[in-house]
Design a protein around this nucleic acid. Structure first.
Lengths: 250, 250
DNA sequence: ATATATCCACTTGTATACTAGTGCGCAAGC
DNA sequence: GCTTGCGCACTAGTATACAAGTGGATATAT
């Protein structure tokens, strides 16, 4: 379906072709732009495919990949594949050496530590802001914890990951910064791979669900000390898993 | 009347001198390969040129740009320009509407608030970690504060920005997470543009230097409460500037 | 048989060609 | 005069072609 973008306000009445912004002392100042812009783009689809495949370890760390290979596999040209590669490289999910080849980025201890640090810092700050003025509405997040608990009991890994993600996202929603989640999600990819690796050989840890409940309780009671402590514990739990794997695997 | 600054020459004839250290492929420690990867890439040069031009408001928010325009301006093909565009879009510095056009992203209140939140969260956490075990070595950062003070006294805006950047970066160094700075730097672009806008019509604020000194003092004395308070004040100061501009300009 | 040099298949980086879609100018009709 | 419709110039998205470089396999010489 072709969306009919309305008049995206006068771009410019520039008689000269290719208005290079070298001499525009008068600020053009067109404020609103890109309302829908939901045109289908192959590069987005490729990005989704690849990032999801990397995330769920369908493409394990270290797997060699090539632009023509992915292109022929997805029946597209190199251009959208290359664009997706660029974005994934910026996220640290793909490692590319110019004239040699590319591979799914290995799970780096340093990267994981950074991701844990970022996530802990942002989530604790979000928690503080969420309980800052008044007690937040915990009905939605409580439902997510319940769903998460059921998924753990049913050993439904996919549902567990899904609810867990929504749960942590909801913390940022309660903090009044819903869009911030997208920033976190980028750095969280590294951790997701590690957790997949963990759950592929272990079983869902009931302590995780319990900690989720404690976070919600702390939100409801506006208990800053307890909340921060649980969040820090919850986040650093990954590092133990990392160490466990590091001793077992290269 | 196309003003073609040294950009074209720099990109076309001679390789960029020095600072490509912005986002080098990290010493990735991938097992079998990873030798040099220091091959000169045009797309990196284009990215540097554009991001710096956006940062220092040489390309003001709202300026319409196009891939062919930049390509002809820098005397390169669309491919590297498009790759740079992709990265800048991910950073929120360029806004592109598929079949319509692109422009330098306007400074969004929402984006600025997010950037402030992220920066505050990461910097406070870094501060806590820096003073966690023992008093950090503040000789380097103290020197940076002094240099920053001198730059402010001399009204040397460029030097002020440079030392200010190194100063905040050093907080992450003291926290033992030097690479984390690159993550912060991406989100900090939005704030940098705002600060440039501010300093273009105001003068360097001596309070900023004083706050820098207070942060270093708190680091030396391991005074968590004072440090966190100063960092929060220091970061949210931008929001006042934002509000000031928002009432003055659209 | 071993060592060495050459070749080639493969990679990514860059340039160019083509496609689809959009807004504005301009001309034709009222 | 004003309105309406068509076309053109411009955009970004995609596909393809070319260039530069690397590492391994193969063939040759010792």
């Amino acid at each position: 379906m072709i969306t009919a973008p309305n008049a995206a306000d006068a771009a410019a009445s520039s008689p000269e072709p290719g208005g290079l912004g070298a001499a525009p002392a008068p600020a053009v100042a067109l404020s609103p732009l890109s309302p829908p812009s939901s045109r289908y783009r192959i590069s987005d689809a490729v990005y989704e495919q690849l990032s999801e495949a990397i995330r769920n370890l369908q493409l394990p760390p270290g797997t060699p990949i090539s632009e023509p290979g992915i292109a022929s596999w997805l029946q597209v040209s190199r251009s959208p594949v290359r664009e997706a590669f660029t974005r994934l490289v910026d996220l640290g999910l793909i490692s590319v050496v110019p004239q040699v080849g590319s591979q799914i980025a290995p799970i780096s201890l340093r990267e994981v530590e950074e991701a844990v640090f970022i996530r802990t810092a942002l989530e604790t700050s979000a928690f503080q802001r969420a309980i800052q003025d008044s007690a937040p509405d915990t009905t939605v997040i409580q439902r997510l914890v319940d769903a998460n608990r059921r998924a753990a009991e049913d050993n439904d890994i996919e549902a567990f990951f899904d609810t867990d993600e929504q749960l942590h996202q909801n913390v940022f929603v309660l903090a009044g910064m819903p869009r911030l989640w997208h920033v976190v999600r980028g750095t969280k990819m590294q951790l997701d791979r590690l957790r997949r690796l963990n759950l592929s050989l272990a079983v869902l840890n009931p302590e995780l669900v319990e900690e989720h409940q404690q976070i919600v309780d702390a939100l409801r009671d506006r208990d800053e000390e307890a909340g921060l402590h649980v969040i820090r514990t919850h986040a650093t739990r990954i590092l133990d898993v990392m160490e466990m794997h590091r001793t077992a695997h290269p």
